[in-house]
Structures are given as structure tokens and as C-alpha cells.
Design a protein around this nucleic acid. Structure first.
Lengths: 150, 150
DNA sequence: ATTGAAAAGACTGCCAC
DNA sequence: GTGGCAGTCTTTTCAAT
């Protein structure tokens, strides 16, 4: 589908605040409520808008530590990528699995209650995975989401 | 605030589908519609629920390439972290800036239209940043979000 | 916890441009 | 074709019991 400048303005507005009503969006981009609504429907239908999601605050839920792990698999072919993804995806503390090309094969985002809890996850869960060669960790200090292009 | 098992069940349900109505949530966790509604209000007030967000499909928007960059700063103190964050945050293609502890100082999530476009961003934007020591890139092949603990 | 009322928002013609 | 207006209908919200 072709997106015009009004569609991009709608996407920008929705990125900043996904809880806006059609009439608020209309006001933001200079359209009536039904016109804005129809365009947003088209964006959903086209797949440009893919899903609704809530942000949970990990601190408030008792997860004070977020760690990024870069994983390099040891022997390609001994453990299939599908198997690795399935097993790692079953670890509760793993929030995200990114298959990447470069120095690592996978990047994992892991949360834990504190550093002691993270050590448990790392030793008993991650290091115990079959096919893992090397693991490198980065502890997150802070994170900022940005609007991105468009 | 203290979260009981019902609150956690609500958060799990909402993580899976953020578009649920109070009555659907009530049915999922065994509560009446107003009881579920009141609990969700409390979760918003407590900050455990922090925001509503839409998933945009980068492919559909013309951004076919997502790259993770690990950045190590060159000379600590020559450029302040605040300055680095401000400048890197102003690059439109940068979607996320994570300040981390470990092998790298920052991890960036960058999108571009294609690899040629990414090369432009890397050479003219990222490498031109003041204070950058080394940069390591991982091209994303696929990504999976998981429910996480709770 | 259930009911139900008030309000807000979602959706649908139809008309003008 | 796209947008606006006016109206209907659903859902949410929240008070009363």
C-alpha cells in the first residue's frame, strides 16, 4: 500500500500515544473523526499497524535487572537453530530472542529479580543450553525508546 | 504495591492481548467485569501498567533492515554520556538507545530501508559521532517476543 | 457481585467537493 | 476518489443496590 504524508502523520501520532481516539487523531492531523478512523482502519488492514501492546514496568513487577546476552553457538549443525530457539524460548526469564548475523548468532533479552537471581538463570538455564559456544553479557543501566524514522 | 496471583493473571492476559475488554479479562481470571475493571485501574495507578503501544511493521513501512550496534566509547570523559545520548538520539534511524555495562557502553537498534541505506547511516551518522571508539554490528534476521516471567 | 444508566467512542450512510 | 456531517449502535465506565 502507498502511504501519503497524512498516513505517516497518523502513524507518528499513534507511536507517541497509542491510546488516542479517532477524534483526537483527527484533530492532530487535520481530519474529521470518521476520516481519521477510516484511515486508521486501512492502516490495520494493510498490516502497517500490526498489534496492540502494553508496556509493563519491570521494576514495579520485581524485576530489577535486565541483561542482554550475545550467544555464539558452538557447533553449527549439532543443534538445529529451531531446537535452540524452542528451548531458549521456554526459559521464563527470556523476554526476546533475536536471531542475528554477525559476531553472535543470537541475542537474548533476559530479566531477573536481582543479580543473584540473574546468576542462577545464567548458570542453570543459559549455560546449560545445548550447543552454546560462548556467551557475552551486558547489564542494562537505562534504555530510551525513540520515535524512529517515518 | 503488592501484587497477588489474580493481578499477575491479569497482567499475563493483558500481555498476550492488550485489546481485551474488562469483561473478557474478568472471564479469563474468574472475576466479574467491574472487579476486573477496578483491578486494572489499580494496576495503571500503581505504574505496573506503564503505557499503551502499537506495533508497526517496519517491512510494510519500507524499512527492511534492522541492525543492532554495540558501541564502545573511545575516551571516557572527552564526550559526556549525556552528550552522546542526545546526539545519537537525534538520528532518525535510531529506534532505541540502551546504556549498558559490559563489553560495550551503548547498544543501538537502527533501522534502514536496505543495506545500502544502512551503510549511509553507519558511515555518515554513526561513525561520525564524537567519542565513538569501536562499533560492532549484528544484522537482525528474525525476532521473537516472549511473554516473560510474572 | 449484579444490574443498569449515562457517556464516550466506534461505525455507517449519504452528500459535497 | 476522499473528506465531512449527522445519526445509530456498541462499549465502556461507574454508581446504586
Amino acid at each position: 500500500m502507498e502511504l501519503d504524508e497524512t498516513d505517516r502523520a497518523l502513524l507518528r501520532a499513534l507511536s507517541q500515544n497509542a491510546a488516542q481516539t479517532a477524534s483526537q487523531l483527527g484533530r492532530a492531523v487535520g481530519l474529521s473523526q470518521p476520516a481519521a478512523w477510516r484511515r486508521v482502519q486501512r492502516l490495520w488492514a494493510s498490516g502497517a499497524l500490526a498489534g496492540r501492546r502494553l508496556d509493563l514496568d519491570p521494576e514495579k513487577l520485581g524485576f530489577g535487572v535486565t541483561v542482554f546476552l550475545g550467544v555464539k553457538l558452538a557447533a553449527r549443525g549439532r543443534v538445529s537453530l529451531e531446537d535452540f530457539e524452542r528451548i531458549v524460548g521456554a526459559i521464563p526469564e527470556v523476554q526476546r530472542v533475536e536471531h542475528v548475523l554477525g559476531l553472535y548468532d543470537y541475542r537474548l533479552r533476559v530479566v531477573a529479580r536481582d543479580l543473584a537471581d540473574f546468576e542462577r538463570v545464567l548458570r542453570r538455564r543459559i549455560m546449560a543450553l545445548p550447543g552454546v559456544g560462548s556467551v557475552e553479557a551486558n547489564v542494562m543501566l537505562s534504555e530510551e525508546r525513540l520515535p524512529g524514522p517515518l
